[in-house]
């Protein structure tokens, strides 16, 4: 897969993150780097802290300790919409689409942070807003073409089957033209064929747009096939990091997945 692909410098560096909710330690001293153009996977059993990690990167949770450096800038506290402005987009484990809106409109909402005309002009569909919408619509159509969802362009997303909703959600994240795309269990609840499709799309996004992808997933097989590097979390700690081949034979990882008792 990765033949001819150039992995670049560090895009996102996460150092010594500690996150706790009351007495629960969700993340303990977690560090890793995500490099440009790579597909980086965070895996781990249920409750390992995967989603928490994504929420930290996304600016949704604020860790008690540690630093996050994105494109060379270390941030203190950041809100999710600021993350979006900086080129971080994400999808959610349990789909968060606007169910009454069409596929196209959902994808257009992904363009919103890139639109410059204000709310009133957009609502009136007037002047510069009209021109702008045309340009954004073109990009949305490119995404629709890319994800092969032409047939559901005008279908309200609430009526779509699960696998397609996931695809639309990916489309909406792509619409923001992100540098870093966070995918929260993109394959959860899919059948084999849908999973294969989704893998194909993730690889194609990475390949065609050069988007860096950080994903969390508990389906080991899928992750091992498409990721360049993998970090493994267990009980909030990072227990391994490396290429899929390295991680697969790591004894700690095998223990974590098979449930060896922790002394």
């Amino acid at each position: 897969m990765a033949n001819g692909k150039k992995i670049g410098d560090v895009l996102l560096s996460v150092q010594n993150i500690n996150l706790s909710f009351g007495g629960v330690q969700a993340l303990v001293d977690v560090s890793f780097d995500v490099r440009k153009h790579e597909i980086f996977a965070i895996i781990g059993p249920n409750g390992a802290g995967k989603s928490s990690m994504l929420n930290v990167i996304n600016g949704f949770y604020h860790p008690q300790g540690g630093t996050i450096t994105y494109r060379g800038v270390t941030r203190a506290r950041m809100r999710p919409h600021e993350a979006a402005r900086q080129g971080i987009a994400r999808t959610f484990q349990n789909i968060a689409l606007f169910k009454g809106m069409s596929t196209l409109d959902n994808i257009m909402t992904g363009r919103n942070t890139l639109m410059s005309s204000n709310f009133v002009l957009q609502a009136l569909h007037w002047g510069p807003a009209w021109k702008e919408e045309k340009a954004h619509r073109e990009m949305a159509e490119e995404i629709i073409d890319f994800l092969q969802i032409e047939a559901i362009r005008k279908t309200p997303t609430g009526r779509l089957p699960y696998g397609l909703q996931k695809r639309v959600e990916l489309g909406r994240a792509l619409a923001a033209e992100p540098d870093l795309l966070l995918l929260d269990e993109p394959m959860a609840g899919m059948n084999l064929e849908e999973k294969e499709d989704m893998c194909r799309f993730i690889l194609d996004v990475n390949d065609e747009f050069g988007t860096t992808i950080a994903l969390i997933e508990h389906d080991m097989g899928v992750v091992m096939d498409i990721s360049d590097r993998v970090a493994v979390l267990d009980y909030g700690r990072k227990i391994a990091e490396g290429t899929p081949g390295e991680v697969r034979v790591n004894q700690d990882v095998i223990d974590a997945y098979l449930g060896v008792s922790h002394d």
Binding site: N3, G4, K5, F146, R200, D204, D207, E208
Partner: peptide, 8 residues
């Protein structure tokens, strides 16, 4: 050409 970028 989609997906064929790395076909050499």
């Amino acid at each position: 050409p989609r997906g064929l970028r790395n076909y050499t």
